[in-house]
Every structure is written in structure tokens, then in C-alpha cells.
Design a protein around this nucleic acid. Structure first.
Length: 498
RNA sequence: GGCCCCUUCGUCUAGCGGCCUAGGAUGCCACCCUUUCAAGGUGGAGACACGGGUUCGAGUCCCGUAGGGGCUACCA
């Protein structure tokens, strides 16, 4: 008998292949993964496709893609292989059937011939399955079987007494056995239910810790009884709190994505939505790790490696959490600020290209320092700095409403721009510092605030209401192009005069 | 309905009987900085669901109430 606590740590994520990955599932996977990594154990991916009706093709790729993107490496799974495979339940049917038969043999389970109609009738009466085949005479069972009637195998749940489960997070939890039904273990199509399949697999795959969502807690006693009936050593179980909708009402769903709490913004819920929205994997990991668990020391920003060093199920929160999506934007901007230039370059380039710009990497690298503190998401790069990568020759001067800054009007703007041209023209170095001092001096001479002058120039050369700073931008554009744009701006203003 | 789990600022959370006049973060507001937008800095409003116990002492332990979540399938 190996005591659970001394077994090598092996945790698993066991999703059903029902389509795009939901952030809630990933959150659960993350905690199982963190636990495995914290204890130098293995993390296993197992596909639970025992419901043929719900399986959707391509799901496994989506699951893999999500885990890969976040950097959650898998030790054993359908892609990786491993000595306890196959890791897809539909490929292990014989195993489940064997153990289901074994339980029948041992008198711990029985064949049930109740039809769906009968079951529906019983449900209507309110009490659920009435155990009518639990003590059915053996000869009658053979008779029905001989007639070819379909049947399921049900577990014989103890009729009385209590089952006490030990949850790693909340301690002992007690259940009255009479509350539980005789659950189906093997369906009439020969596929197992979750109840049977996860136990058979967790046993054969040597899982040491079953880390799953709290919705499984009510069936925990059933699982404990099945483990006992099978005569196997149980792994330890931990039931994790789940993500609620941002308003705290109901489990986080992929449907209701509009929430007033999120400023009407579309709330990302599916993994691909995080990728598409321009979040960094590190930020998403940091974000998820901070829900239901915390790093300590009042530290909010930490790497996955740091989290692994401290992660413990003991201080996982007991309560479900409203999905704190607003924090992700903040975290993401923090991650962008700290990201190495190489990484930003790699991330931003395809986004700019997708927006139709031809990206010169050298120029991108010049622009990145200007973007760092301005991007909440990598997506923001195109509207903010796309103009750097557009064809300069076809730059169109902005309209007067963009050019005219606060506390400025048509005439003052034209005067300021016209006067700035020779100042810039005479500069030997076109560095932003040199420009700054020259233009500041110029502003003083003509009696304008820096903001009025700088702002007018900025609008003239960027053509945008919101943009990177003036002189840094002009430095990158170069003297010639900058002056050309100022001239175009003057033209635009005079054209607009009616 | 029955059963199970949960309950600290709007939200994510710290707190594991005295260190709490309850800490951090986000969001919000104000001010500072400032060349737009940001970033950054400073400050502010903001919570122990309620009622009983236990104890010299309760956010921390127990019970109840209320509220929230989940389960109650031949779905996971």
C-alpha cells in the first residue's frame, strides 16, 4: 500500500473535447499544472471523449494550442505519448468494460434495463431512479439479456450511512449515502460515464492528486465508494473554486459576454479570444494564477517560475470568484512595459502586417520605445503607430479639426507651424532633444505655451489626435519628411479656410 | 424542493484569537508631472452579510438566518 502522500506527484487535466477552450477549464488546468511543477511531478493530459454526442472534431488541437500558448508543458498525453496510454478515453473502452463487469461480478454493480421513458417517468415523480433493477433476480436478468434488451451498469451505492471525503482545500466533507443514486457506470452504448472512466484511468495512470472544479464535489462520495469497491488506493482530491461571470451571477459562460461591469466591452472567455485580443501569455498566466490563489507579500506581478516556487493548494481560496477581467488590461500593459524589445518586435510585426503595413524591423525597433507605455494590448499598435509604416509619400495632411489644438485656432495654428519650420530646418542634429530645446525656445519667443506648439506639430506630422510624442516621432520621420508634413498641414489649414 | 460548498472594499485578495483605528491590487475620484494619449508619483472614497453564542478578547472558533454558487442525466 502506497500512501498517497508519498507517491510521486502526477496530476492531470481531463477536458472533454467539446470545442474551444474555456478560460474556466484552463484555470483548473493551471492549478493542476502548478501543483505538479511545484512538486517536481508530472502533468498529464487526458481526453475524456466518452460522450460521443458532444465530441467535436478538432477540439484536441484547440486544447493543445491553449496549453502550449500559455507555456503549460505536458509530460504525457495524446500528442506526447507515455507509458500509461492511450490518453484518449474512447481508445480505452475495453478497460472500462472489464472493470464494470468486475464490479457486477463482485455484486457492487448491476445491470439495469430501465428505458429512457421509464427513467423520465421516475424523474417526474421527483425521486430519481428507484433502483428497480438493483435486486433483480439473476435468472430474470439473463432472460432480459437474452432478449437483447439494452442495459446500463449501475453502481450499488450504500443505502445508508455516511461517506466522508477529504478535500485538500476544505478538509473533511460529509455526505449521507442515501442522498446519492445508483449512478450509471457504463452506458448502453458500451461507453463509460465520467464516474467510472476517471477512476479507472486515474488509477491506471497513477494519478496522485485529482485536482478538479468544485462542481464535482457532490459526486465525490460516489467516487469514493467506487474506489473502495474497486479496492484501489485513492489519490488525493482537491476541488477548486470556479470562475463566475463578472457580475458574480452564475458560472462564467461563453454566451453572456456583454456585461455592464466590463464597460460593455466584449469579455474574452475562450482561449483564442485572449490571443486575438493581443494579450501576452505571461500576463494571462499571471492573471489566472491570481484568481483563487495569491503570491503573497502583497506582490501582484510575478512570473510563472516564481509562482511555481510558492504554489500550494492549501491556500487556494474556498470561494468562487467573479471574473476580474478589468485587471487583465492593467496586467497586460505592465507586461508590455517590461517585455524585451525583441519580444515586442516579434509580437507587433505580424499585427502591423495584418493591418496592411510593410514593416521594416529596424524602424519597428525605433518605434517600440515610444509604444511601451502606451499599449494596453498589442492590438493597439496599428492605430497608434501604423503611420510609421505606411507609405510616407502618400501621407495625407490631417484636417483642421485634428490640427487645431486646445487653446488654438486656425490662425494661431498656421502661425505657429509656419514659424516652426525654419527653426527645425536650421537644426544640425535632428535628435528629439535638440528639437525640444529649439522648439521650446521658439515657443517662448512667440509667447506660446509648449503644449500649443508641440501639440500642433505633433498633429501635423502624425495626422492623429492621439499619437506618440512629437519630437521622438519627428526624429524617426527625419527632418525632411517632418518638414514636408508641416508644410502639408499648413496647406490643409489654408484649404479649409472658406 | 433535497443535498453539498461558499460569504472581508464594486472586483481580485491579505488576514489562520490579541500585531486590525482590517493590508495590497484593480477600478473610480482628485492633485502633481506633462507635448496629445499613456506611463509614473501623491492622496481620497470604499469591506469583515446579519443574529446569537464561546472567550478576558472574534474578521479570525461554533450555531442559526440571509444571500450566492453547484449537484440532483445512459453530460462531463
Amino acid at each position: 500500500m502506497t500512501s498517497p502522500s508519498t507517491r510521486p506527484v502526477r496530476t492531470r487535466y481531463a477536458p472533454s473535447p467539446t470545442g474551444p477552450q474555456h478560460i474556466g477549464g484552463i484555470h483548473t488546468a493551471l492549478f493542476a499544472w502548478l501543483y505538479a511543477r511545484r512538486h517536481g511531478g508530472q502533468f498529464i493530459l487526458r481526453i475524456e471523449d466518452t460522450d460521443q454526442k458532444r465530441s467535436v472534431p478538432g477540439s484536441v488541437d484547440l486544447i493543445l494550442q491553449a496549453l502550449d500558448w500559455l507555456g503549460m508543458d505536458i509530460d504525457e498525453g495524446p500528442r506526447e505519448g507515455g507509458e500509461f496510454g492511450p490518453y484518449v478515453q474512447s481508445e480505452r473502452l475495453a478497460l472500462y468494460q472489464t472493470w464494470a463487469a468486475e464490479l457486477v461480478e463482485r455484486g457492487r454493480a448491476y445491470k439495469c434495463f430501465a428505458t429512457p421513458e421509464e427513467l423520465a417517468e421516475m424523474r417526474k415523480l421527483g425521486a430519481g431512479y428507484d433502483r428497480r433493477y438493483r435486486d433483480f433476480p439473476a435468472d430474470r436478468v439473463s432472460e432480459l439479456e437474452a432478449q437483447g434488451l439494452p442495459f446500463v451498469i449501475r453502481f450499488k451505492m450504500p443505502l445508508g450511512g455516511v461517506t466522508i471525503g477529504d478535500d485538500m482545500i476544505r478538509g473533511p466533507v460529509e455526505f449521507d449515502n442515501e442522498q446519492l443514486q445508483d449512478a450509471v457506470l457504463l452506458k448502453s452504448d458500451g461507453y463509460p460515464t465520467y464516474h467510472l472512466a476517471h477512476i479507472v484511468d486515474d488509477h491506471h495512470m497513477r494519478i496522485s492528486h485529482v485536482i478538479r472544479a468544485i462542481e464535482w464535489l457532490p459526486s465525490f462520495p460516489l467516487h469514493i465508494q467506487i474506489w473502495r469497491a474497486l479496492g484501489w488506493n485513492m489519490p488525493q482530491y482537491a476541488h477548486l473554486p470556479v470562475l463566475l461571470n463578472p457580475n458574480g451571477k452564475g458560472k462564467l459562460s461563453k454566451r453572456k459576454q456583454q456585461f455592464a461591469e466590463a464597460d460593455g466591452k466584449n469579455v474574452p472567455v475562450l482561449m483564442h479570444e485572449f490571443i486575438d485580443a493581443g494579450y501576452l501569455p505571461g500576463a494571462v498566466m499571471n492573471f489566472l494564477t491570481n484568481i483563487g490563489w495569491n503570491y503573497g507579500d502583497d506582490v501582484e506581478i510575478f512570473s510563472t517560475a516564481q509562482a511555481i516556487k510558492r504554489f500550494d493548494l492549501k491556500n487556494v481560496s474556498l470561494a468562487n470568484s467573479a471574473y476580474p477581467i478589468a485587471k487583465l488590461d492593467w496586467l497586460n500593459s505592465q507586461y508590455i512595459q517590461r517585455a524585451p524589445a525583441d519580444e515586442l518586435c516579434r509580437l507587433l510585426k505580424p499585427i502591423l502586417e495584418a493591418a496592411g503595413y510593410a514593416v521594416d524591423e529596424k524602424r519597428l525597433r525605433q518605434v517600440i520605445p515610444l509604444l511601451r507605455v502606451r499599449l494596453k494590448s498589442t492590438r493597439d499598435v496599428a492605430p497608434m503607430a501604423g503611420f510609421f509604416f505606411a507609405d510616407w509619400a502618400s501621407f495625407e495632411a490631417p484636417s483642421a479639426d485634428i490640427l487645431i489644438q486646445r487653446k488654438m485656432n486656425r490662425d494661431s495654428t498656421a502661425d505657429v507651424l509656419r514659424g516652426a519650420m525654419p527653426v527645425l530646418q536650421e537644426l544640425e542634429s535632428f535628435s528629439h532633444d535638440a528639437q525640444h530645446s529649439a522648439v521650446a525656445a521658439y515657443a517662448k519667443t512667440i509667447g506660446y505655451k509648449n503644449g500649443q506648439v508641440f501639440g500642433s506639430l505633433r498633429a501635423a506630422v502624425t495626422g492623429q489626435k492621439v499619437s506618440p510624442p512629437t519630437f521622438e516621432t519627428m526624429e524617426i520621420l527625419g527632418k525632411k519628411e517632418s518638414l514636408r508634413r508641416v508644410k502639408l498641414a499648413l496647406q490643409s489649414i489654408s484649404d479649409s479656410e472658406t
